[in-house]
């Protein structure tokens, strides 16, 4: 694996995100949203990086399940790879996610039109 130092001009906030959403009243399974923050406008990339930090994403358990699922809620699977090789995957029920994680999930979902 190459590390950031070897590559030189490495922005640590560059991340690849893949979000899969299922459930909801419509029961649709839309195509995954795949985002490379390097390809986003800088302001958007910074917003995503801030949301990832606020959600403490890399410290979350791999599975965040609701003990009593609420009808018609979404379920999400989010994988984030940071340049440098750091990778973490979280599957969660929307109603079990913290406010910060919800904000991250909703923001990534709405990035679909920018990819």
């Amino acid at each position: 694996m190459r590390d950031g130092a070897a590559l030189g001009a490495f922005d640590v906030s560059n991340m690849r995100l893949k979000l899969i959403r299922t459930g909801g009243v419509a029961g649709l399974a839309p195509p995954p949203v795949v985002v490379d923050t390097a390809a986003l406008p800088e302001k958007e990339a910074q917003r995503v990086a801030a949301l990832v930090a606020e959600a403490r994403f890399f410290h979350l358990p791999a599975v965040v399940r609701s003990r009593k699922p609420q009808p018609d809620r979404f379920q999400y699977s989010l994988v984030i790879e940071q340049e440098g090789g750091r990778r973490h995957a979280v599957r969660c029920d929307e109603e079990a996610a913290s406010g910060a994680l919800c904000r991250l999930l909703h923001a990534v979902q709405t990035l679909k039109n920018l990819t």
Partner: peptide, 8 residues
Amino acid sequence: FDNAFWNG
């Protein structure tokens, strides 16, 4: 937001 739900 693309959803409606009952939260209990």
